[in-house]
């Protein structure tokens, strides 16, 4: 079990009182799964990802990452994290940006160079090593940030709405590439999104969440095959799955209004 959360809860203290960002979340993610978290804003999907990454501290329940606490997992560099924006350092070239986590781990230069070449190849960015981030398009920048998250060779990839700021066309292509990447590497991916087609297209498991308090209202295992061309999105199974997700989201909404 890569991630296992039991009765996980997190409340923030704000000026207007307490906010229950997460309440009684129970979830298990197995190795090799591609899990999407979907829900309206404020449903706690990003918060849950940040709890896994030890960027937020839960106030109730337990969670383990690779059998360790999130803090231990972070110190063991057990995962790569892709943020909403590429967050590349503008003073570093593409290859230096990918090298950043390796420098921090203290990997020697020759070994690091091999890693960088391989991860840039994975996101199809060979030949752009010496470019600066601001010389690349938004989609390419996000691919560099994925390469950076892969550089550790961690088996867990956490992605927080990584394609949210990109246009539909670029997004489709990156979805296809991400799916191919996941099949090749057999890693575990936790993916936050608010796009139903994206979640259905990519995932083996879809976690539908709802706000106030942030909680899981449905967990759907995808019957779609592992091999997924883009046109699978017109198939009946796909549409049925998308329908179920949409129904779940609607149910979550009607409850709180």
């Amino acid at each position: 079990m890569v991630i296992s959360a039991k009765n996980l809860g997190l409340t923030f203290q704000t000026g207007d009182g307490t906010v229950e960002a997460l309440k009684d979340v129970n979830l298990e993610i197995k190795a090799g799964e591609f899990v999407s978290f979907i829900g309206p804003s404020g449903c706690g999907k990003t918060t849950f990802l940040r709890v896994i990454a030890d960027l937020e501290q839960p106030t109730a329940g337990t969670i383990t990452v690779d059998g360790k606490t999130p803090a231990e997992a972070r110190k063991a560099r057990a995962y790569g994290y892709v943020f909403q924006s590429p967050a590349l350092f503008p003073w570093r070239t593409v290859e230096k940006n990918v090298a950043l986590p390796l420098e921090i781990v203290g990997m020697d230069r020759r070994q690091a160079a091999a890693h960088i070449a391989r991860t840039l190849e994975l996101v199809e960015l060979g030949g752009f090593e010496k470019k600066y981030p601001w010389q690349l398009s938004g989609g390419m920048q996000q691919r560099v940030s994925i390469a950076r998250a892969l550089a550790f060779d961690a088996n867990l990839l956490l992605m927080d709405e990584p394609f949210g700021a990109l246009d539909e066309i670029v997004r489709d292509r990156l979805n296809e590439q991400l799916s191919a990447l996941w099949q090749r590497t057999a890693m575990t991916i936790a993916f936050v999104t608010h796009s139903i087609p994206e979640a259905v297209y990519l995932s083996t498991k879809i976690v539908v969440m709802s706000p106030r308090p942030g909680r899981v209202i449905d967990i759907i295992d995808s019957p779609l095959p592992k091999e997924r061309p883009l046109d699978i999105r017109e198939s009946a199974e796909f549409l049925a799955l998308a329908h179920r997700v949409r129904e779940g989201l609607r149910a979550g909404h009607s409850e709180d209004s």
């Binding site: 940040r50 990454a53 030890d54 960027l55 972070r74 110190k75 560099r77 995962y79 790569g80 994290y81 943020f83 909403q84 924006s85 967050a87 350092f89 950043l100 986590p101 420098e103 921090i104 781990v105």
Partner: peptide
């Protein structure tokens, strides 16, 4: 986000100071 990134790398104070 950049600071969170350095945190996910478990980068120390001086590493974050120097690199970010």
């Amino acid at each position: 986000i950049e600071r969170d990134l350095m945190r996910t790398y478990a980068a120390g104070y001086f590493s974050t100071l120097l690199r970010l």
